[in-house]
């Protein structure tokens, strides 16, 4: 029997992206630069997060015409973002044939109470999290891949580090917990009990977990990998920098060789200025994107 859109197939594509870099792009030319640099996938957008942040207003799913042009320009998988809870934007992207949907806090949420029921789709979803409970709620809704949120569009890695450390700490805590305490842990982190048990047994998330939100240098990418990420998303960090092609290539190599300081020296050298960035600590709670969704 032939089956499409199974859990194995959805989760499987994320497994194939491991050790790789997924780059935000807004034009077919940028998509080509990303592919030539060795990106494993691109995220098709109208504006990178730094520009969304600067522009203000309501941020929505990109125009399908823009996404289609990017899909035609490259052979690697193409992802695109929908607003949290906006299942019709997701239906549109699925019909368009997108390879992965990011239900993303970078766009303005469409529903403050409910995320999309991702089990209802054949196309796989990636969702953001700040801690293990949030990750497991998204997986419970059908996300086949997770990314830590960080603080998108800042070029400041501090929030990405905070979220990755938090997820990893909570996993280690569950691993060391006697089985009879897991229900209370599930209650405390508001996460599905079956998934809490699975994480305690596996010692990791049951799906691939990338880092996102503020990665701007090869060293940032390697830092997130050493902290336990399976791969990285780079949003504004590449195309808001002085030399996107050189930086993109350097971040790809730093992600593949994250444990090899000799490679990290080589790829960090002479790649032009990084994006200027905004200190995440200087943002008010209302200015932070990471608090969108729950």
């Amino acid at each position: 029997m032939v089956e499409k859109g199974t859990w194995t197939v959805k989760k499987g594509l994320a497994e194939m992206l491991k050790g790789g870099v997924i780059m935000d792009v807004t034009t077919p030319e940028q998509a080509k630069i990303a592919e030539d640099a060795g990106a494993v996938a691109v995220m098709a957008l109208e504006r990178v997060p730094a520009d969304i942040r600067a522009a203000g207003g309501v941020a929505r799913m990109a125009d399908p015409a823009i996404i289609e042009k990017i899909m035609d320009a490259v052979t690697i998988p193409v992802m695109a973002k929908v607003r949290i809870g906006h299942f019709v934007e997701a239906q549109i992207l699925e019909a368009l044939g997108i390879d992965y949907i990011d239900e993303s806090e970078v766009l303005t949420p469409a529903d403050e109470s409910h995320h999309i029921n991702k089990h209802a789709f054949k196309v796989p979803f990636v969702c953001g999290c700040r801690n293990l409970g949030e990750a497991l709620r998204r997986i419970g809704e059908g996300a086949a891949m997770i990314r830590t949120k960080g603080e998108a569009g800042t070029g400041d890695v501090v929030e990405a580090v905070r979220h990755m450390r938090c997820v990893m700490d909570e996993i280690r805590r569950l691993q060391n917990m006697p089985e009879d305490e897991l229900m209370a842990a599930a209650k405390e982190m508001a996460a599905p009990y079956e998934l809490v048990k699975e994480v305690a047994k596996l010692g990791r998330l049951p799906v691939v977990n990338f880092a996102a939100g503020g990665i701007a240098t090869p060293a940032d990418a390697a830092l997130m990998m050493q902290l336990g990420a399976d791969g990285v998303f780079v949003g504004s960090g590449i195309f808001k920098s002085e030399n996107p092609a050189a930086r993109a290539k350097a971040i790809v190599e730093a992600t593949a060789h994250y444990n090899d300081p000799d490679v990290l020296v080589k790829v960090s050298r002479g790649i032009g200025e990084a994006m200027r960035g905004i200190q995440a600590a200087g943002l008010t709670e209302a200015e932070k994107i990471q608090g969108r969704g729950w």
Partner: peptide, 15 residues
Amino acid sequence: RRNAFGRQVESFEAD
């Protein structure tokens, strides 16, 4: 031929 069966929504399992 690459991506010969189509994009991700066409990905499948079979015996």
